[in-house]
Design a binder for these strands. Structure first.
Lengths: 233, 233
DNA sequence: GCCAGCCGAGTGGTCCGACCACTACGCGTC
DNA sequence: GACGCGTAGTGGTCGGACCACTCGGCTGGC
């Protein structure tokens, strides 16, 4: 019938492209359920094993979601779904690449904080303050890190760009920060971090974008410079 | 013997984490060859099928590279390898998400262009000019788009941050731009785009970071505003 | 002695069929 | 009417078989 398959690349890659195209062209809507693995495989004329590999790849990328016993669904395709893999990049980057990543974070974080200063609501500001207080009230590094992350996430969210917030979240992923912090805290940078956070909060409360941008840039730049020095000598 | 497996999640997910951990902890170096699929599967006590799904997922993410008949290798783990999936995000984003993505691009592109203005060498500037000239010398939309992409990639590269360049490359991926351009060009924005590119080039040649930042921000912002208007009404 | 070509072992790529684990829905029971 | 059980159907896992390709060593001729 339709043996026009050009045979480009592996069959699994073709399957991946096929499903991506279905979504991009609107043949599959976010949240919609896909045909079963067995039918998808039959439809493309490939084995279920190959189709499963394609589905797994898209699942890991956050495009699809497989529910055991129920079916395969397209995710909401929101920023958070698709940008989760960004954390992997941060986890596997090393050396000079890590500094570059931190530079990207500095650029985005400073802009996001500036935007947040202009737009933040009272409720959002209260949430920021909650994490700031919790961060200063404990000595458990684990807990401090968690509230630190939430602190910045809340700010990024207040900037009104969920995509940017998701990227920043990935750039500040757990292992990434933990790795850098390990040696950083030992140099008494603890107090400095606390001061920087206070400065950021002050700028947000005053709705001062320029001050917020400067404070955020300095905050990230601090770590950036330290890391650069570590690599240099 | 060692039945301490906590059984969290699917076996494939565990395999993915296992391999990622091997790389993150330095047990696997960039470029190094992995054991065979069959051995990896045996080592983790899972079937080859499941292991293949894990490998496929990591391959798509740009962490691993499978060479038929030869073996599986860790990629160089350079920015380009890992951030290739970023293009998928751009391809699948729609509506408000697309505007947010463009906003992120505006922020990064303007900063990258400003950095490039300060650091660009004569050779790099010549490369930029080459694409600019080629872009203005043809009417083929396909070719224009290609040179447009190369124009910006060259600039991002001159900024000295390969990670940022890779991200911008993903944000400007083929289908992403083609999709937006389709309707954009019809409104006579062609001449305006050409003027904006000229302004960017002028700022680069003059080594004027502030002018470069403004020109790049305006260039991206132009498309951003148009897209925002499309969605609004 | 050297080089070209062949060839086989080993690798990833694909397929098949079976079974397990879980979910969802309907039917029967209370 | 609500509850609970059973069953059909789904994704998850497994094992084995075969194909397509790569690469190194071997063989043969020059």
């Amino acid at each position: 019938m339709d043996e026009a398959a050009p045979q480009k690349g592996t069959v699994t890659e073709r399957a991946i492209e096929e499903i991506k195209a279905m979504i991009a062209e609107g043949r599959l809507e976010p949240g919609q359920r896909l045909p079963t693995e067995r039918e998808l495989a039959a439809r493309l004329g490939i084995s279920r094993s190959s189709m499963r590999e394609a589905i797994r790849a898209l699942t890991v990328m956050g495009v699809l979601e497989a529910r055991h016993g129920s079916g395969i669904y397209v995710t909401a395709l929101e920023a958070g779904d698709l940008l989760e893999t960004f954390g992997v990049v941060a986890d596997l980057s090393r050396g000079p690449r890590l500094v570059e990543l931190l530079e990207v974070r500095r650029i985005l974080e400073s802009t996001a904080t500036a935007l947040a200063a202009a737009r933040i609501t009272a409720d959002q500001l209260a949430a920021v303050e909650k994490h700031l207080a919790a961060m200063n009230a404990t000595d458990d590094p684990e807990e401090i890190l968690a509230h630190d992350l939430a602190f910045h996430r809340e700010i990024a969210s207040a900037a009104g760009n969920e995509t940017m917030a998701a990227i920043l979240d990935g750039l500040s992923s757990r292992t990434f920060r933990a790795r850098v912090w390990r040696g950083y805290q030992e140099e008494g940078a603890f107090a400095r971090t606390r001061r920087e956070h206070a400065a950021i909060h002050r700028a947000l409360a005053a709705h001062d974008p320029e001050a917020a941008r400067a404070a955020a840039a300095a905050h990230v730049g601090e770590v950036e410079e330290w890391l650069r020095a570590q690599l240099g000598g």
